[in-house]
Write a protein that binds this DNA or RNA. Structure first.
Length: 717
DNA sequence: CCATCATTAAACAGAC
DNA sequence: AGTCTGTTTAATGATG
């Protein structure tokens, strides 16, 4: 302990220029007081100028902090009502708790909120004993659940009726118009489901669902483990009359996507949906965060954004088609992703993915709890991740703890945060749990390399998490730098832009800037996969993919079989395996065509992306495959794509346009051959993902990039 | 135990 | 002079 703190102070001393920022940041986090979501949200909100981030946030996604706040407000309202009743003698004096509970439950939330009293939460806590508060909270939760259920039910019915009407009318309409209408309905249903899911998960996260199974009315009893999107309609309908035709059809739509024209409505589970819940749940002036912006974004026919549209490209799984604007995207959506067997199958796959993720999340959380209980790590705290983590990146002692904790997972993997939790529990990705708990330290250790963690998809799916949670990403600096560079259309970034990407994408890197910036520079210089190119405006950094692949241990290349094998070996192998199976089942062409797996593009579909599987991500020039590129620096400048020189040697074998997203869907055989020649017996090892015969020795050694041959000469050890 | 490699720290130089 | 950028070395620790 003393050693840790000593080293901590020692290490923090050099970064004096960032000391103020770091300290203030930490003070914010801790001063905010355990409000994990709130702290994260405030962090995200305070960091202005992050175009992507704010854009995503402003789409109306309700943050956990908002939900929490909303529920707390409601709980307080109910508690106030309860106090009022007690004070005015409305409830019979001799009543026992159950009677009082009943009376309290009977108070509609909306009514309670319409009569706000002037009691502060602190006053409430002083007046009410903790058991009372808890009872009230539970009552309120149960009541709110009921109201929500009814609301959702009505909304679903209404939407379904609208949909049916629209479909009948659409028979006479042009197909596109119908598609647009369907899209709108689809969005609405989708948003409703998202809302339901968020509510349920939020409740579950607070332990309220499982806390009160008897009060939470039937359906919720079935989701202590996982809430699956496919289950939600059932869950919410379970209480109501099950025989209602509209509900049944909606339910079937949610579960069976195979056939009819109605199936396109209720399946997608894209997390970036703004739930339109404000008007019903908060009828009157309650100054909550459930603002009309969500309505505007969700109910309009032509919203300013679309959950399947982002960063100028279609987010449909495996598509990534570039669309200049929303209109074009809508057109593209209606043409390319119309209601057909393929789209239906893809949606079904997506459903299964989400479902598996949810299940996996529940299992992993449970496992983590058990592990922590076993290891006596905060056994008394059921929500170990609810608080913002303030790691000390400079402390190697912390890093040791973090790494060892991460490695203590049963499967021996330092779990990167899988995609399961990020959309719904932004502060708590599973698997990262123990690492983030003590974290601080570099949760890195080649996690992206050794375990083939798909950094691009990881980042894509846990984007919000890393952006808000002060958790070190489990990727190496090299991986992150490369990701930053590849995310840009030109695949080149200045050092400062790389810095900005780090701070924009990761809350963790908003502190201790001296440390990680130095590391970034160090990595840029050290790894020869990063090539510095003199530009007109200055120097930019690019990625030499071949070098990047070369420096990595070969895992697998191209072969879907290998991909599957590796996937099933990963920590979240189960869900990915099911994903694979689902893909195969739906004859999804993705895994069968190497070109579909893109490196830099945030492969929104696959939890695994090419790049981190060690597969060749870009078609690399076959010229000079055996010549060590380190011989002369000018060679580098030709291997990379520079703005001023769009068509250079690097692009020779690449038919794709020089600009645009990192989507060289032209990978493949030439590249593989090239690498195979260059790394004989390493890249292509068809039988097993990690061939035992492979040894990363000798020529794959850690090599320095001799930018200046003079300086290298005699210093090489 | 050794080789490899990621990370961190630090020194240094050049450009601005 | 100070800062930024870039290079290099060294130490440390993890991993296979």
């Amino acid at each position: 302990m003393m050693v840790e703190s000593a080293s901590e102070t020692i290490r923090s001393a050099p970064s004096s220029q960032n000391g103020v920022g770091s300290l203030s940041g930490q003070a914010d986090g801790s001063g905010g007081g355990s409000g994990g979501g709130a702290g994260a949200a405030s962090t995200a909100g305070s960091t202005a100028g992050r175009d992507v981030a704010t854009g995503a946030d402003s789409n109306g996604e309700m943050s956990p902090a908002e939900l929490l706040h909303f529920q707390q407000q409601q709980a307080l309202q109910v508690a106030r009502q309860f106090l009022l009743q007690q004070a005015s003698g409305l409830s019979s004096p001799g009543n026992n708790d159950s009677k009082q509970s009943a009376s309290a439950v009977q108070v509609p939330v909306s009514v309670a909120m319409m009569s706000p009293q002037m009691l502060t939460p602190q006053q409430m806590q002083q007046i009410l004993s903790p058991p009372q508060l808890q009872a009230l909270l539970q009552q309120q939760q149960a009541l709110m659940l009921q109201q929500l259920q009814e609301y959702y039910k009505k909304q679903q019915e209404q939407l379904h009726l609208q949909l049916l009407t629209q479909q009948q009318a659409g028979k006479q309409q042009p197909k596109e118009a119908l598609g647009n209408k369907q899209l709108a309905f689809q969005q609405q249903l989708l948003q409703m489901q998202q809302l339901q899911q968020q509510h349920l998960l939020n409740l579950q996260r607070q332990g309220l669902v499982s806390l009160q199974p008897s009060q939470a009315s039937g359906p919720l009893q079935s989701l202590p483990q996982a809430v699956c999107p496919t289950d939600l309609p059932q869950l919410w309908k379970g209480e109501g009359a099950p025989g209602q035709p509209a509900e049944d059809s909606v339910k079937q739509e949610g579960l069976d996507l195979t056939g009819t024209a109605t199936t396109a409505t209720s399946f997608t589970t894209t997390p970036k949906v703004s739930p339109p819940l404000s008007h019903h749940t908060l009828p009157n002036g309650q100054p909550t965060v459930l603002t009309p912006r969500k309505d505007s974004s969700s109910h309009e026919e032509t919203p300013s954004s679309h959950p399947l549209y982002g960063h100028g490209e279609c987010k449909w799984p495996g598509c990534e088609t570039l669309c200049e604007d929303l209109g074009q995207f809508i057109k593209h959506l209606n043409t390319e992703h119309a209601l057909d067997d393929r789209s239906t199958a893809q949606c079904r796959v997506q459903m299964q993915v989400v479902q598996q993720l949810e299940i996996q999340l529940a299992k992993e959380s449970e496992r983590l709890q058990a592990m922590m209980a076993h290891l006596h790590m905060r056994p008394s705290e059921p929500k170990p991740f609810s608080q913002p983590l303030n790691p000390v990146p400079g402390s190697s002692s912390f890093s040791k703890v973090a790494v060892s904790a991460a490695d203590s997972f049963p499967d021996g993997l330092a779990h990167p945060p899988t995609s399961a939790a990020a959309p719904v529990t932004p502060l708590r990705p599973p698997g990262l749990g123990s690492a983030s708990l003590h974290s601080g330290g570099p949760a890195r250790r080649r996690s992206s390399d050794k375990f083939c963690s798909p950094i691009s998809s990881e980042l894509a799916q846990n984007h919000e998490f890393y952006k808000n949670a002060d958790v070190r990403p489990p990727f190496t600096y090299a991986s992150l730098i490369r990701q930053a560079i590849l995310e840009t259309p030109d695949r080149q970034l200045t050092l400062n832009e790389i810095y900005n990407w780090f701070t924009r994408m990761f809350a963790y890197f908003r502190r201790n800037t001296a440390t990680w910036k130095n590391a970034v520079r160090h990595n840029l210089s050290l790894h020869k996969c990063f090539v510095r190119v003199e530009n007109v405006k200055g120097a930019v950094w690019t990625v030499d993919e071949r070098e990047y692949q070369k420096r990595r241990p070969p895992k697998m290349t191209g072969s879907p079989t290998l991909v599957k094998n590796m996937i099933s070996g990963l920590s979240y192998g189960a869900l990915n395996a099911s994903y694979q199976a689902a893909l195969a089942e739906s004859s999804f062409p993705l895994l069968n065509s190497p070109g579909m797996l893109n490196p830099g593009s945030t492969s929104s579909l696959l939890p695994l992306s090419h790049e981190d599987m060690g597969a060749p991500v870009e078609p690399l020039p076959s010229n000079g495959s055996s010549s060590p590129p380190r011989l002369s620096p000018p060679q580098y400048s030709h291997q990379v794509q520079v703005k001023e020189e769009p068509a250079e040697a690097e692009e020779d074998g690449r038919p794709g346009p020089p600009l645009g997203p990192p989507n060289p869907s032209t990978a493949g055989p030439p590249e593989d051959r090239d690498l195979e020649e260059e790394l004989p017996g390493e890249e292509l090892t068809p039988s097993c993902p990690l061939p035992p015969s492979w040894k990363p020795s000798l020529h794959l050694s850690y090599c320095f990039k001799p930018k200046f041959t003079v300086s290298v000469g005699g210093q090489d050890p």
